[in-house]
Design a protein around this nucleic acid. Structure first.
Lengths: 351, 351
DNA sequence: TTGTAGGCGTTATCAC
DNA sequence: GTGATAACGCCTACAA
């Protein structure tokens, strides 16, 4: 038995498909009684209303915006930053009846060429029925961004770009790094460690990164800012992807390798919270023995009394949401304010 | 200038559209060198690859599953239960390159007929390009569920249903209510209050619900279970939608109206946490003065040492995910195990 | 107020 | 290995 479409319904009623369509989309284009009759018969013969796929193709709009969160979709839900961002984003788009499409970045088959890896990475984005795309915690030149541009869909990134044709909502990451760096420098810290996120699983053994590897990091600008402001050694360490566990692992690595600095900076609050946890486990006192700083000021940072750089995360999501659904869609750039929030985890360097 | 499609590219190359399509979807159907040439030219003239809308229409698949979370999309992100559920769901679906579509339930225009309200409520679901749908914290007979069925898409609900043709992953909510009720009864509680979620904003003034209003609640079965097991008064109170704030407001209402029972049961852990907070604010001791119980055992419940009924939330998401993407798609029912977790917030009733 | 017709971009079928 | 063709289901000029 064939599927029930607008045609089936039209035939059953002896009217044209156009009229049926109008009954759903333009009530003013036909008499109320006819419309009533159409809707009633639809119910009767089981026509579920206009099909989304046909509608999307014909109208060129999907009524949905896409969000590419991080490498792993499931990680995002344990990242307070992502959650807060999504809250702001959804507040805006749901007012307009727009849906949010969360897409995974599939890792390319191992051993494939770079071009093919790129290709397979964005499969989900390619197949997604969306009108606009935003990417979070991913480089602005991610293959998915390139694809979105090629498709001609609105693209809003969350990092600063020099291209005046691009839209973004971001903070000054370099400036944020400088803020933290100056704060620590003024407290006499000359030897700091930076906890960063990498693609490895959470709580990976822990290791030190060379300068060359640094460019792959999402927040290279923050590190650069730190380096500029801190007159001393800056060691980069990772324990895996962005999670409390990774922060703890990286900190433990520092302890185990006798590399404990006077201050530890998590490139995200989550990593910094992991550091706090690991230090507490080893009976080290914060900030008496080691100072700890984070970035972003997620809700948990306040609860932990963590010194960090505040940014309006939810606002960020709202701004992105507005740009995503803006029909005018001319490129716009939004630079959000940041501020250092000095709390209880930083103090003068021990000597 | 017209959009670049498979046709444009085919014309530019002097091959047929079918071959171009094959170059993308069936590499084995054409010679490697031709494929290479096609992909190269695509890059050159800026063909972004097969369009999602056309593809979805033609193939009848969108490679995406829909999730209807609660009345307000943005609330869901502050609900630990929803987050945990989504984590499990995404773990499963992202392995298959499937996207997740989060849809809002738009409230119908005020003053419209019930049928039209239903209609406008499900607009987002109607327009969503999805292959399957699940609904969380919403009655299984929600208009969106009806629509999904009519569309012939896979539907997985999260509450028990008697229809053998339906798929669901759920717990025994009545049994969970009985568990809590018996626990409290055995401690001598004969006068309890139940904090429930309603559609009002969080932290609404607070009020008592009549039995008649109860049937509208998501978790009526839990209340029924409580009622069965507790030999005494069971008062139903609400302070708005599911949030800590609402739980606190409802509890404050109890205090203000001199209705303080010997035990307060939050129909979700979040509401129970709100109760704990409000009691602490009023210098009442838990459990010495008042016992408190929750449901679901979210991570924060453990941290707060809250007595609650454990259910495997993440497993639930994973199960739902598997059913959503199961191509066989025959109806399946999964009843997940629950258990009472007795922690520090319950004690014998004060006399 | 209602009907006709064309096409949105793709892919499966079936020839060649 | 490659090409022509016909849908998929819908909406919107435009014509009646």
């Amino acid at each position: 038995m064939a599927r029930i479409t607008v045609k089936t319904l039209a035939a059953a009623l002896g009217v044209s498909p156009a009229t049926v369509s109008n009954a759903y989309n333009r009530p003013d284009q036909l008499s109320p009684q006819l419309r009533e009759r159409i809707l009633a018969t639809a119910e009767e013969i089981g026509y579920p209303g206009p099909d989304a796929a046909g509608r999307t193709l014909r109208m060129g709009r999907a009524e949905a915006v896409g969000v590419l969160l991080t490498e792993r979709l499931s990680y995002a839900f344990s990242d307070p930053f992502a959650i807060e961002f999504l809250t702001g984003l959804s507040e805006v788009v749901e007012e307009h009846g727009i849906s949010i499409v969360l897409m995974p970045v599939s890792r390319g088959a191992p051993g494939s060429s770079p071009a093919e890896a790129d290709e397979s990475q964005v499969t989900a984005v390619r197949n997604a029925n969306i009108d606009a795309l935003t990417i979070l915690s991913l480089p602005a030149d991610h293959p998915a961004a390139t694809l979105a541009r090629a498709r001609g869909m609105r693209l809003v990134t969350t990092s600063v770009s020099n291209d005046p044709e691009s839209s973004w909502v971001a903070i000054d990451d370099f400036g944020a790094g400088v803020m933290v760096g100056e704060h620590l420098a003024s407290l006499g810290h000359r030897d700091i460690a930076v906890l960063v996120e990498t693609n490895q699983p959470a709580g990976s053994p822990g290791w030190r990164l060379d300068a060359a590897e640094l460019s792959f990091l999402d927040y290279a600008a923050r590190v650069a800012g730190l380096r500029k402001a801190v007159p001393g050694q800056v060691l980069i360490v990772s324990g895996g992807h962005n999670s409390i566990e990774s922060g703890a692992t990286a900190t433990t690595w520092l302890l185990d390798h006798d590399q404990l600095p006077t201050a530890i900076v998590g490139l995200s609050d989550v990593l910094a919270l992991g550091a706090l946890q690991a230090l507490a486990n080893c009976r080290l006192r914060t900030p008496a023995n080691v100072s700890v700083c984070g970035f972003d000021d997620i809700p948990a940072a306040k609860a932990a009394d963590l010194t960090t750089v505040h940014q309006p995360i939810r606002d960020k999501g709202q701004h992105v949401g507005r740009l995503l659904i803006d029909p005018a869609s001319r490129p716009r750039q939004v630079l959000l304010p940041i501020s250092l929030v000095t709390r209880a985890t930083t103090a003068p360097a021990r000597r």
